[in-house]
Write a protein that binds this DNA or RNA. Structure first.
Lengths: 326, 326
DNA sequence: TCCGCCGTGGAAATCGGTTTCCACGGCGGG
DNA sequence: CCCGCCGTGGAAACCGATTTCCACGGCGGA
């Protein structure tokens, strides 16, 4: 609480400059003095004040992460993977939630920048309306977009190839002999919704007419599922924009006693932990969150180590996970 | 980037002291000067450096949160609720993950304290082994335990009355005419596992013999479910230690074609979002995460506002959510 | 032998705010 | 009329590190 580097230096019989150099492992300190400083720090139970270090060195060794919704297991897993790698690099993580509100997102980013984060990892919640704040932030610190990205080349991005993922699903369904498919997705206000919709329209065999758009929630999945059941003819498969929608669709189908996959096949996207527990277990597309987090952290680390700020987009190939639902 | 409070003061024609007072809304500044300062700050797009403010005022306006597993939707929701309330109070959240490892937890707490967090919100991952680091932290900053707590009165705690929750379940099952019940829980290394087990043993009508203990994972739920199926006689109901276990049990039952709730009833605990989507929808005990987060933040806010550090335990009453599985 | 370089370490400036301390002027009360 | 208090605002100390700048001594080369 009260023990500063001055106390350590005094006890070791050296100047604060030498103590600082010894504690931060810099060269230019005789081994004898170095060990005296370390011994003194140990004896006094010295705990460095990271705030003071941050002020002078203009580096907080902390990083801001902004996600639309922490409680979404997909983002939570992503945050966990990022946190693990940051902790290993002795950096801290400031977490903020945008609740899919660009205005709140702007305030959150502002608060993080005031706190002098060394970099920003951001899942921009809106394809268009997040662009401005993202560009402002990128002018001040390194920024990497995760999972979603804004239109235009504002900052680097690391995510999954959404269109390719949907293609995997559509091809798998075709190989099973599925005739007509429907797509239940989200309005393309974010880039993933857009890419998955585009991917479906390109890959589906002329079936681009049977498309229902809402949001990425289980409630929407339930409503959309009910709506499809009320039609004259059930499609052979329902391709969902993510797992949460798919779980909603499944629960609507179960309520009406429709057998999956016998009467209709259902697929998801993301492979959240609960996809495997659904009845029947959900066929879906796995997003390699570990790889995404690793690449994002790698990009930032490179920037800190002096690499020039190139803006690049890295799309990681997703993987089809075949389970009982299709 | 480069504009400091000195620039603002110079442009407004006042001293930095006056500028500081005006910007932080203190009294003792003539309205005329106050508006001159605010205008200057606006014109220069002044962005205060929170690190500098933190150093002098010995207050970072940030708070550390340590949870065992961010990706667990229960903790993720808790973190989200806390974050929302902190953001409203213009405070930031430093997030750390202990991965149920007391040693990692210790390092995480140390890193947060070095960063001078104003308080710590912690879900101690071990009933016994988390006690020491918790006490050390509590000696430096206000600490509130969330959801779980260590043995002994190290720090305040806010959570749910686990034993009462299990009682609700057992009574509900009894009212349905369930004869024999089994309990699938977790080894009591954390306080919730302990309290739920104790609660079950007290509430169950002599059926304390049919108890299987593992961990709070879906894999354990699946294994335990299979094990129960291999017995001579199926119990009338399976009371699970949390929803994740219950979902695992449900998937094991579904695989063997056992009808829920007709052949066996199943209950969970927590009411995670996926409990309602299970087939059949899961009867469970809802933990009011919003209320827990609100109370924890309220406790800390009171401490910051000068209340004396009383150590108290607040158990919030949980609510039974009856769905189709029981 | 003398000069310059290098390794080491100390004094002090610095980061950018907040807070303390004090001076000044106006006003009310004795 | 004089004294003291209060509201206001400036100068400077301060928070606790890092980093710059410089001094000193030893050593190798000319």
């Amino acid at each position: 609480m009260g023990v500063t580097i001055h106390d350590v230096a005094a006890r070791a019989g050296v100047s604060v400059a030498t103590a600082s150099r010894a504690l931060s492992g810099q060269r230019g300190v005789r081994p004898e003095n170095r060990s005296k400083v370390l011994a003194a720090a140990d004896a006094l139970a010295y705990q460095p004040n990271a705030v003071a270090a941050a002020l002078r060195s203009r580096t907080t060794r902390s990083l801001g992460v902004v996600v639309p919704r922490i409680a979404n297991p997909f983002f939570a897993t992503l945050v966990e993977e990022v946190e693990q790698r940051l902790h290993a690099a002795d950096r801290s993580l400031l977490l903020a939630n945008s609740r899919y509100d660009p205005e709140l997102e702007r305030r959150q980013v502002g608060a993080l920048l005031d706190r002098q984060v060394d970099a920003l990892l951001m899942v921009p919640c809106h394809r268009v309306r997040s662009a401005e704040v993202l560009a402002e932030a990128a002018a001040r610190v390194p920024v990497v977009q995760l999972d979603l990205h804004v239109d235009g080349p504002a900052a680097s991005w690391v995510g999954v190839d959404n269109a390719a993922g949907i293609s995997l699903v559509v091809e798998h369904l075709a190989a099973l002999g599925t005739r007509r498919t429907a797509f239940v997705g989200a309005e393309p206000t974010d880039s993933a919704a857009q890419a998955r919709l585009d991917g479906y329209r390109r890959a589906a065999p002329g079936g681009a007419d049977d498309v229902l758009l809402g949001d990425f929630s289980k409630e929407w999945g339930q409503r959309a599922g009910t709506r499809l059941l009320d039609r004259a003819e059930l499609p052979g498969a329902i391709v969902c924009g993510n797992d949460t929608i798919a779980l909603g669709v499944l629960s609507a189908l179960a309520e009406r006693g429709v057998a999956v996959p016998d009467e209709v096949r259902v697929t998801g996207f993301d492979d959240i932990p609960y996809a495997a527990l659904a009845q029947p277990p959900l066929t879906t597309v796995r997003q390699p969150q570990g790889a995404i987090a690793a690449e994002a952290v790698r990009l930032l680390t490179a920037r800190w180590d002096g690499a020039e700020p190139v803006s690049q987009r890295t799309a990681i190939a997703p993987e089809l996970v075949v389970r009982a639902s299709a």
